[in-house]
Design a protein around this nucleic acid. Structure first.
Lengths: 184, 184
DNA sequence: ATTTACATGTAAGGGGTTACATGATTTG
DNA sequence: CAAATCATGTAACCCCTTACATGTAAAT
């Protein structure tokens, strides 16, 4: 149920249309909850059906921009959800499954994949740093900006962590398997 | 499709029944791909339907232990999958959504939740260290043990990362909001 | 004999992804 | 007018979760 509440937060921060939300999820919200426009539209329809958000009464046909804003019931639902405790989920990482598989069936082209992963994390890292530079340059004054900065730093640190671990892993795998996998 | 291949890896390491797999996913495999016994049984049925694994021909009724092992086609499918590149997924973290929500609607009992999360990560951290102590005490000789140790260290480091970040976050939130959320 | 633990499943529903469809607006 | 772009949606599918159902074996 996190997408629903991520949308409520985003709409509280600024009333938006579905595509606006999709763009904001690509930018600043996406580093802890990603979403495609399809899932956003579906969730917006549900939120409207549950009377938690309201579409401003402008458009009357398809292809027209529809602005949504949060109703009081939506704000209450969000407050209630924030109060619910949810245990942290176990991480799921296909690359680590591949790595464990490689320990059994041979590494194949896995080293190359790990270098690509490291590049991908480096790109995200740079992206986050750019956001930090643009949006949080001055020592944060408002509390809400401090919190958003804190969340961004979580993303920065995670990307750094994976870059470090991947470098270690690549080094170890290069030693263990300098060439091609052994023939069966 | 990762569950399917995680099961293939597990069965290659050691032929197992569904419940065996569930237990092994709780223990050593679960720190990078968790699974319930229901999803494991379903995937085993599919794997058998696709002729990638085979049930040893002992049992003929419900409630009887069924041992599976990987067929050559299963091994090939796993090798092929290891070679496929999959970009790292964006992380999804409900706690960070809650945190961003708290910046808008007030923190409520979020500080307590973050302390609980930190405890949960500390528990997992201890659990992983215990596995490391038990299974990888001596300097690893075989390559496959080195790789499994490397994967475990990824989990250890991740838990440490979250403990560190949560401590920073808790400290900041305690300063920003020493008492209860402001009344509406 | 009943309970407990072990073991394998079924059913319903939620949430996400991919591919596709359709209407409006702008641009060459 | 045609094409590209913006914007909202539909449909099918996949995977996972939760709750429940059923059968066997061991313990008391």
């Amino acid at each position: 149920m996190s997408l629903r509440h991520a949308i409520l937060v985003a709409l509280l921060e600024r009333p938006s249309s579905g595509l606006d939300l999709a763009r904001r999820f690509d930018r600043s919200i996406g580093y802890f909850w990603s979403a495609t426009h399809q899932s956003i539209y579906r969730e917006l329809a549900r939120l409207e059906g549950d009377c938690l958000v309201e579409a401003l009464p402008q458009p009357n046909s398809r292809g027209q921009r529809k602005l949504y804003e949060v109703l009081p019931a939506g704000r209450s639902a969000l407050v209630a959800w924030v109060g619910e405790y949810e245990a942290p989920e176990r991480s799921r990482d296909a690359l680590l499954v591949r790595l464990r598989a490689a320990a059994v069936v041979g590494p194949g082209p896995l080293l190359k994949q790990m270098r690509l992963h490291r590049e991908a994390h480096a790109e995200r890292h740079a992206e986050y740093l750019e956001i930090a530079r643009r949006d949080f340059e001055d020592p944060d004054r408002e509390a809400s900006a401090q919190v958003r900065h804190l969340i961004l730093r979580a993303g920065v640190g995670l990307e750094e962590y994976w870059m470090t671990w991947l470098s270690e892993a690549i080094e170890l795998l290069s030693d263990v398997d300098p060439g091609d996998p052994p023939a069966p």
